[in-house]
Nucleic acid binder design. Sequence first.
DNA 1: TTTTGGTACTTTGTCTTGCAAGGTATTAGT
DNA 2: ACTAATACCTTGCAAGACAAAGTACCAAAA
Lengths: 111, 111
Amino acid sequence: MEKNVNTENVRAQMRKGVLEYCILLLLAKEDAYASSIITKLKEANMIVVEGTLYPLLIRQKNQGLLQYRWEESPQGPPRKYYAITDKGREQLEEMNNAWQEIVTTIENIKN
Amino acid sequence: MEKNVNTENVRAQMRKGVLEYCILLLLAKEDAYASSIITKLKEANMIVVEGTLYPLLIRQKNQGLLQYRWEESPQGPPRKYYAITDKGREQLEEMNNAWQEIVTTIENIKN
DNA sequence: TTTTGGTACTTTGTCTTGCAAGGTATTAGT
DNA sequence: ACTAATACCTTGCAAGACAAAGTACCAAAA
């Protein structure tokens, strides 16, 4: 169905730009490792794939927004648990403001 | 001020992905030419520059979402007035849905 | 009639980012 | 050993945002 493909494109397009925001939102609530983040976002209708998420987490870590620790897994290889830093929380506040502003802006344009 | 630079980055990041949506929203209300679109978006706090907008308009036109006509200007060179097409309005509806879904998703993640 | 200033459209090159696809590593059960 | 499940990482491509520089048109002043 062409329409569904198109619909997915539209949604994918809009998801870009709020992905980093979503990661910080999730990690502000609790530490998590990459695979679990993917699962959580998928549950929330915000689809992300590994090839997107891993580089993104590394970028945010390099910016000092996140830090990580290794933890044993009950099954399989150890997990890299990411946690938000103080700087990450500051950034998150910025993003909360930015997001609110965008939502308002769209409403204004719609009238 | 480092904070302002950062703030701008955050906002710029989020604006991506909703830009096309904003263009269609504006053009659904009335035809407009590029420079006036830039002005309108700036008034709505959605900053765009020429190097972003022109290729975007061309892309949307090539997708059949927009069409254009030339019109004399009271002063200066003629203006390329863009108008939304039927296909563009369909796409706009998709985008309205997509936008609403994203807003809801973010709310869900926030709890 | 050349120059200047304002308006408008376009292109080029760089950088960032999303993602498909493929790869590596660890553990437990067979 | 082999397999399956889990988890992390990298590579290469493509799309898009933007700064910067370029082109073109018009009218009024010099």
